[in-house]
Nucleic acid binder design. Structure first.
Lengths: 197, 197, 197, 197
DNA sequence: ACGTACGGGACCTCCCGTTCTT
DNA sequence: AAGAACGGGAGGTCCCGTACGT
């Protein structure tokens, strides 16, 4: 399975995603096309698939309950990036190269990420006992995850030479700077007031 | 011409992007499949093409050059939402309903939005004479546009009963609140310093 | 064993025959696809197999040997409907709802019914000692069974509120009325003459 | 199109329906598989398709309005058989051979015929100004059409040597004989009374 | 400029068979 | 007797391109 993904990524990068047929991949991995589809429902999923899917929950629950959500998200996301990068940077680089460039795959990836954000926000809300559809929670999670994606973009463009986590930190800092220059438009909602104290 | 796009979008929205063949579109627009390709090189281009872009550029250029980017993005995005909502709210509601729910379409939409963000940042950078790949610009634009998307999500879930622009303002406020609680991690980069002054 | 059939029928009914793969069925029945084939040589056999056949035979053999075939068929079919309806009307309603509407399933059902008619006629012929391919026998059985199917159609459309057997009787009566208005075209064949006496 | 069907029927009969792939057919007809699907949506449809689809309406409307429905149906069906048989008996024989034996095709054929019966009854009802869902009309049409199908079965089994229309007449006669021996079970409904006078 | 007809070839799904293990 | 893993190969759908008309 890992092996199939390996061969597929290699071929995709070597000769282009669209130019690589499933038959090529199957041949390279020494299996039949039929077997390919047993492991990956579609061609896109070969790129999407990640061996160890997020072990976020624990970290989320280990944080002090009075920590601001943004801070928690920042740490969780950071830890994920770190893990991703430590495990198998070359493969991540290959994958992200495709995730960033092939439109069909990128679409699926964005959608996938988005639903991940939703889950993150929901889980967080559950753990903290906040309303699950809190406006602030979601936009915060989205902004933080976007920072991670931007960092990945950069990192990929640098060919993996820069440090992914540093890029991420810098991106979040930039976000803080930029948003910090904005002033609120409306009055705070009562709950928000309480949060802010 | 843009009649083709009209029919195509309608069909995509009604029955899903993948379920709609070029032949369907051609039939609906009363042309031959062959002619379709004379106007749009591929199926995707029908979706990606947009005719109201101008609005953004003007507004972008009319802002004072020392306004913080985040502020500019906030205003531009706000104006776009306002325009969208004023023009044809029912159509927007319908479209967004599908954009939000059908995964395949949502993927396309996210991808589309993302590239819109890129363009926005690039254009802004060009106008201000900043480096086009400024880290801060991109993350800021993304966060702001995410707020717009979240607002659209809410608005769509409310069935269009709430005010879209109000939702947007509230979401941006929530973003400001949340990110405001974060402290920078690193020292400012030299260029960032200059930006901040 | 018949548990497999149970699961299979449920799935066929729920999501359509063609949409249900053997793998689905195997999963639902908690066996491996390989084992499925140990019990049913092909996918179709799951549908075609029936476990209550005995009823018909007995009834068929209990009728006086000089009773007109049409009368025997009428009674046998009537009894079958009665049994069907008594046993589990809701299930019958559900099943027939799909048998009537989903084209693919309906095709199978018609084919299945047709072969049932064949069997009925053959068995009857064997019991009475008539030629197995008697023209009259088959058309009679078909007409009678059609009446049953029409009754089922109506009954299903009424949502099960009407009495199935009454509908059946009325349909057969209508058949008698209509066919009674026809005159024979040709001379009776010798064998037919004998039958008629 | 006719040509494709010709080649397909030949191959199906020569080497079996399932053993003949669409590629074989395409090769024999000197077209690409892709083109095959332009004309026939599925493999089954090659057998199902009939060049001149029923010209029943006229005949239906030319009959005197007080003729019993059964009589009209008998004539219409008879005329159809005659036409079918006169036009291209060999092809009909081939087609019916497959329609009778290949289960998948037979299923579709029965379903197809059934909907034809429905249409016939509906059209008749419209022309005569009777209720479209008249119980008697439908069962009558079904019985008559069944006679035609039985005749086709026989004819096909005889290898086309017997006269199709004669077989049909004999089958209808047999139907009349058999049903004539049945007595009504219930009282006539008011409308039925009127019809019968 | 537009249409009709056709083809290449990818993707994906499914049925069923095979092989090897328990 | 049962299961896991895999494969062969057909069916069907689609995008896009081509050839050749008007």
């Amino acid at each position: 399975m890992r092996e199939i993904q390996g061969e597929a990524l290699r071929l995709f990068v070597e000769q282009g995603y669209d130019q690589t047929t499933i038959e090529h991949v199957a041949d390279a991995a020494d299996i039949s096309p039929r077997t390919f589809f047993r492991y990956f429902p579609t061609k896109e999923d070969v790129v999407l698939w990640d061996e160890y899917d997020a072990v976020v929950s624990e970290l989320l629950e280990s944080r002090p309950p009075d920590e601001p959500p943004a801070e928690t998200f920042r740490l969780v996301t950071r830890a994920s990036l770190e893990a991703l990068c430590r495990r198998d940077p070359e493969r991540l680089l290959l994958r992200y190269q495709l995730l960033a460039t092939v439109p069909a795959v990128r679409g699926r990836f964005l959608e996938f990420t988005r639903s991940g954000v939703d889950e993150l926000a929901t889980r967080f809300a559950a753990h903290r006992g906040v309303a699950a559809d809190d406006q602030g929670l979601r936009i915060t999670a989205m902004a933080i995850v976007d920072a991670a994606m931007l960092a990945l973009d950069r990192w990929q463009r640098s060919g993996g030479s820069e440090n992914l986590v540093d890029l991420y930190d810098a991106t979040v800092d930039a976000l803080i700077d930029a948003i910090g220059k904005l002033r609120r438009r409306g009055r705070r909602s009562p709950r928000k007031e309480r949060d802010a104290r």
